[in-house]
């Protein structure tokens, strides 16, 4: 490990510890809810980055996995009495299974068609959920029991889950899987010629990404105590994309940095006009960054620190 890397890891752990201790020690109750929400969206962005940033499979419908995880966890804990913490993981597993089933035939399509299919899926899910009373119909599912009694515990759990998802994406990309995913992103035909079972690894990458998004969605459902079809809508699909583009595509910390910037912006933009304009500001910002700095803030900083070509 390079010296620079060591400093980096130590700094990161220090920041994480500060994030865990400070809001609680200073008793900043109103911030804790916002930070919890931020951690949840950061997780969603990490999940999107794994699939769309690292593997090059552009998803415009991550809200399907997010809302799906929320619905599955809510139904498991309300109708089947599964304890909340277990329901988070079981719910994420359910949506991983469902999403992989839908993804399997779609992964065969060329990249831009895959992207458009991902745009369609949440629209179908929205209409289907709307029409099925067992899923709560238009109003959604109410009275989801809380994951933890205290807001502090919920916050710490969301922080741990977010750090965990970052760790997973780091370990995946550092392992042989990371090389395989990059090969698939770079050139599928060459990857096949090198002996890589492309469909299988695409499915594996998709499943990991869905699982993380599903966990984030379950947290979201427990945080709000309610989940409705509106969660499938475009805003939840575009937020992880905007956050990741801002922070840095195909970088480990990019999605988290982007999520924090955007969520802090949301809270800063309390003025009425600006609140209405916030999505305009993010999308314009993401468009600009995408066209001018395709690797985002973290990519830009990394180039400054490590020099031009360091991977």
């Amino acid at each position: 490990m390079k010296r620079l890397d060591k400093i980096f890891v130590v700094t990161l752990l220090a920041v994480l510890a500060a994030m865990a201790v400070l809001p609680i020690a200073l008793n900043l109750r109103f911030i804790i809810f916002i930070l919890t929400l931020t951690n949840i969206f950061a997780m969603l962005a990490v999940s999107w980055n794994l699939l769309s940033g690292y593997m090059g499979l552009l998803s415009l419908g991550h809200s399907f996995f997010f809302a799906g995880g929320g619905y599955a966890a809510a139904i498991l804990s309300i109708s089947y009495g599964v304890p909340p913490v277990a329901a988070v993981f079981l719910g994420a597993l359910v949506i991983t299974g469902l999403g992989s089933l839908i993804g399997l035939p779609s992964l065969k399509l060329r990249g831009h068609f895959f992207a458009l299919v991902t745009l369609i899926i949440p629209i179908i899910a929205y209409q289907v959920t709307n029409a099925i009373p067992q899923l709560g119909g238009h109003d959604g599912i109410f009275g989801i029991p809380s994951l933890f009694q205290s807001a502090e515990a919920f916050y710490l759990a969301s922080l741990a889950a977010m750090a965990g998802s970052v760790m997973v994406s780091y370990l995946v990309m550092r392992s042989r899987l990371g090389i395989i995913f990059t090969c698939i992103k770079d050139d599928e035909i060459a990857a096949k010629a090198a002996g890589i079972d492309v469909p299988r690894y695409k499915l594996l990458g998709l499943a990991i990404s869905i699982f993380i998004a599903g966990v984030a969605g379950a947290f979201y459902a427990y945080l709000n105590g309610v989940i409705s079809p509106a969660t499938y809508e475009l805003e939840k699909a575009s937020l992880p994309l905007l956050m990741t583009l801002l922070g840095g595509r195909a970088t480990i910390l990019g999605p988290v940095v982007g999520a924090y910037i955007i969520e802090i912006l949301i809270e800063t933009l309390k003025i009425e006009v600006l609140v209405r304009a916030r999505l305009l500001i993010y999308s314009a910002l993401a468009l600009l960054i995408f066209m001018i700095f395709p690797s985002g803030i973290v990519g830009f900083l990394r180039r400054k620190v490590y020099g031009d070509t360091a991977g």
């Binding site: 415009l60 060329r110 990249g111 831009h112 575009s238 999505l279 993401a286 468009l287």
Partner: peptide
């Protein structure tokens, strides 16, 4: 690039 095109046009649509 096709993927880049979808990403850009998607962002433009959001704007």
């Amino acid at each position: 690039d096709h993927i880049e095109m979808i990403m850009t046009t998607f962002l433009i649509a959001l704007v």
